[in-house]
């Protein structure tokens, strides 16, 4: 059983690495037939695969479309495995993120990449789409009890909207409730991040993921300290 289990986990990981949807679904079926713990199949199988893909992308070994394909395979296989997990035993997402492109801007390449990669990494991402007014980010974050709000802007003349979102959060006394991250293809850097009142920024999806994980861990640490 153990050798078989390891073999199935390896197949799951390899299917993600090779962005092979058919192989992934076959490995999922095999895992179910062999009565593997679906959560373990996700965490030790699929996640190991997406981690490897992420590392390859980070090293510049594979182009973006393959990262997206791997993330799609991961999502599909994960959803299938989760069908076999009872509601009360379903793993909590790493974090809940509301993500969108700010008002006036209809570029969605970056937010689609972030959605795919963050979802594959275990986040629950609510991508609210492009051309979204400040109000919609806040409304959705309140509705889904988000941990993170992410605002993307590609054009220099829409960057201002990231600042308005930061100001709106502050004005409504919601700023400390959420981790606020900003980014986009033409993001000017640290100084603008401070100007927006954001917690952090990124122009690269893998860096964004690392930062989001760090910020979440810090926040959880803060909550624990407060409870004590």
């Amino acid at each position: 059983m153990s050798a078989n289990k390891e073999a199935i986990l390896k197949k799951l990981a390899e299917a993600v690495v090779n962005f092979d949807e058919a192989a992934a679904m076959a490995a999922v079926n095999e895992a179910i037939s062999a009565q593997l713990d679906p959560v373990e199949a996700i965490t030790r199988g699929l996640t190991a695969g997406i981690k490897e893909v992420g590392e390859k992308f980070g090293r510049g070994e594979i182009p973006l479309p393959f990262l997206m394909l791997a993330a799609q395979v991961m999502e599909k296989a994960t959803n299938e495995l989760l069908k076999y997990v009872p509601e009360d035993k379903k793993p909590e997402p790493l974090g809940v993120m509301v993500l969108g492109t700010v008002e006036g801007d209809i570029h969605n390449l970056g937010t689609n990449i972030v959605t795919a990669v963050f979802t594959a990494a275990g986040f629950k991402v609510y991508n609210i789409g492009v051309d979204q007014p400040v109000e919609n980010f806040i409304k959705k974050a309140e509705e889904v009890n988000a941990d993170i709000i992410g605002a993307s802007a590609l054009m220099s003349n829409t960057l201002q909207q990231q600042k308005f979102l930061g100001e709106a959060l502050k004005k409504r006394r919601l700023r400390n409730k959420y981790i606020y991250m900003v980014g986009g293809g033409a993001f000017p850097g640290e100084e603008w991040c401070r100007e927006c009142g954001a917690d952090d920024y990124a122009t690269d999806v893998m860096i964004a993921l690392e930062k989001a994980k760090r910020l979440l861990a810090e926040r959880k640490g803060e909550r624990k300290t407060k409870k004590k």
Binding site: G104, D105, I106, H107, D131, M155, N157, T158
Partner: peptide, 10 residues
């Protein structure tokens, strides 16, 4: 420069 025949509001 976005996609086919898309024009942003600006």
């Amino acid at each position: 420069y976005i996609g086919t025949l898309q024009l942003n509001r600006f």
